[in-house]
Design a protein around this nucleic acid. Structure first.
Lengths: 352, 352
DNA sequence: ATGGATTACGGGCACGTGCCCGTAAAGGTA
DNA sequence: TACCTTTACGGGCACGTGCCCGTAATCCAT
């Protein structure tokens, strides 16, 4: 039975140090106006008491509201993937508002690099205390990062990472391992003679995520001496007709494809093709818990979906900023999300 | 652009109603001492303003601390499964303490019904404002529930549910569906001629959880016209020697067992047996992210672990009580946890 | 010595709510 | 009318921290 000796706060410190609470306050917020001698004495007492400020009182008394910004892609007609992180951000906002935190969301067009740059300008002008950002374009993000460093604004990445920058944290998947998991699932019941098809459907040329995923996918084959031949295809158009055309060609060239792995959420387009061309015996795995994909899970066309809790990414991202700024708690720099496996049987309980 | 008109709180209400803040306070906490007329007027204003009390100020001003109890099984030498929920409970405690909430944990022995009853007595005597409980023994839990109802103490169940009682919520897996998922994974690459073995290792006779799981497992076979024959075995001793003896016998009788499904966390005992008897070609699936199991995942003896985020169950359970008591927010009565699939490839990122 | 600037500190109000205590008004009894 | 009880309400302090404002003390230049 140990008693937490936190009977008093600032007043107790002031009493012990023979100063006023105001002076203690100055030390706590390292403002000017305290002699080195008393500062040292107060700091010693603070350490000795293991003083923890009462956040309730602190937030209540503090006039200044903390404002956070989130910069993520807009929901497009191609994919509503980003509605999930947005959801998590909103959820965090709701919880934080009563603690004097405001959240502002900025959206950009994934197919328009300029919109990204423009929103970055807006965010930087907004005078926010912390920023969450999806670093979809590398060079622009690097410029953003150095500007944040100059202004001493903490920022963190979600969904994909750009290593080497001084972000507060990364919250998202370990993409390489994610591809590794995909390979495991895809080969779990695959006959040795069958070929495996990797499909990347993406307009953006400089999207680097799928490279990591594919790398991990191939690593699994190496590590496990998986005998299957790997075929790969890049498709730069996202509409069904184009995808179907490319796939028809690939399946024509390779008669014995037993499994297909799509490196992003557009797996439903492939599913549609497989179903239409009566190839549902091909095992199919792809990414993300979006409605179209779940429909094909239900329909037994997609075998597994891999998912990285995008909702939670948004939530945790905002909460991490909050923790840092309000309670300045230490934060893990790498915050890898679980690599979730979603099937027809468990999807109804999945929490994004 | 809509402005939240929450500029003021109780004072604003008081001003509009031409009363003092004290009177508003009395209405808010429906205490006595307010005439029906002014009460109605104030309530109208409250509704009109959509007044949300400032929880910071409320918790700060309120002397009374809210105390919560958690009643869960102790960690035993048989399994440290319950260390995970305890972990989540502690995590919640840490977050809530600064908001004036205290948590007390009561542990009982899963093999000793009397210890359960005794701890229930202690919990009820403790005068707690809310209780989280793992309803391991049905009859005792029912008595507990009616006593709570009498005293108007909200309580909720985690890990397993007893329907028909007026618990605040259930936070745990949908066991039937969980068995369903197990069957899917187990049969995913199973040859039609192979038999499937269901193994239940448990001392407790009245443990009803595995019945649900097994029911779901068999339902999958029915729903999918799975041709494999199912063999089942109950083992009432949990030590390795006994388990090995029973399994030796079963595998002797059934030469063509291709996959085994263990209905709880003791799958590592089976894994050990399979490894020792050179039967690692048998697919093996079981429950829970405990160290022994993960070791056999790593060792390729266990194919999949199914897991229901026990840590999160503890955390959410306590948080739900907190939400109910402090902000009296509405709560979902059924709160099914995701049915997570853990493999050798993704376990390192798994979050209990 | 006088004045002004700077440093080092204390007093005290404010944040929004909880709640104790005091009291005027209304009602009841002899 | 005098006295007591009950009802209905207001005043005001407290919670722990943030921060504005005032001021004694020290220092420096005239």
């Amino acid at each position: 039975m140990e008693k937490e000796n936190e009977l008093f706060g600032v007043k107790e410190i002031a009493r012990r140090a023979n100063v006023s609470t105001a002076t203690v306050d100055r030390v706590l917020h390292n403002r000017t106006g305290v002699s080195e001698k008393t500062k040292a004495k107060i700091n010693a007492i603070i350490k000795e008491m293991d003083y923890q400020p009462n956040i309730l009182a602190s937030r209540l008394a503090s006039k200044k509201i903390i404002s956070l910004a989130a910069l993520i892609p807009d929901v497009s007609e191609e994919t509503d993937f980003w509605s999930a992180p947005l959801n998590g951000i909103r959820r965090a906002e709701g919880e934080m508002r009563q603690y004097g935190v405001q959240v502002q969301v900025f959206l950009f067009d994934l197919n328009d690099k300029d919109s990204f740059s423009e929103q970055i300008r807006h965010v930087l002008e907004g005078g926010f205390h912390g920023i969450l950002i999806s670093p979809s374009f590398i060079e622009e993000t690097k410029k953003f990062a150095s500007e944040c460093a100059r202004r001493k604004i903490p920022y963190l990445f979600i969904d994909s990472d750009i290593p080497g920058l001084h972000s507060l944290a990364y919250i998202g998947p370990h993409l390489r391992k994610s591809g590794y998991v995909g390979a495991k699932l895809l080969t779990y019941r695959l006959e040795p003679a069958k070929k495996v098809l990797i499909i990347n459907i993406s307009k953006e040329i400089d999207n680097f995520n799928y490279l990591e995923i594919e790398d991990g996918f191939r690593a699994y084959f190496n590590d496990n001496n998986q005998p299957n031949e790997i075929v790969r295809i890049d498709i730069r158009e996202t509409d069904y007709q184009s995808v179907a055309r490319h796939l028809t060609y690939v399946f024509h060239l390779n008669k014995d494809i037993g499994a297909a792995f799509v490196t992003n959420s557009r797996v439903h387009t492939v599913a549609s093709f497989l179903k239409n061309s009566h190839r549902t015996h091909v095992s199919l795995i792809g990414y993300d818990f979006v409605k179209e994909n779940v429909d094909y899970l239900e329909d037994n066309v997609i075998d597994f979906l891999i998912c990285h809790r995008p909702d939670d990414q948004g939530y945790r991202g905002m909460m991490t900023l909050y923790q840092t700024l309000v309670m300045n708690a230490p934060v893990a720099k790498q915050n890898y999300m679980p690599i979730d496996i979603v099937t027809k049987e468990n999807y109804e309980f999945y929490q994004n």
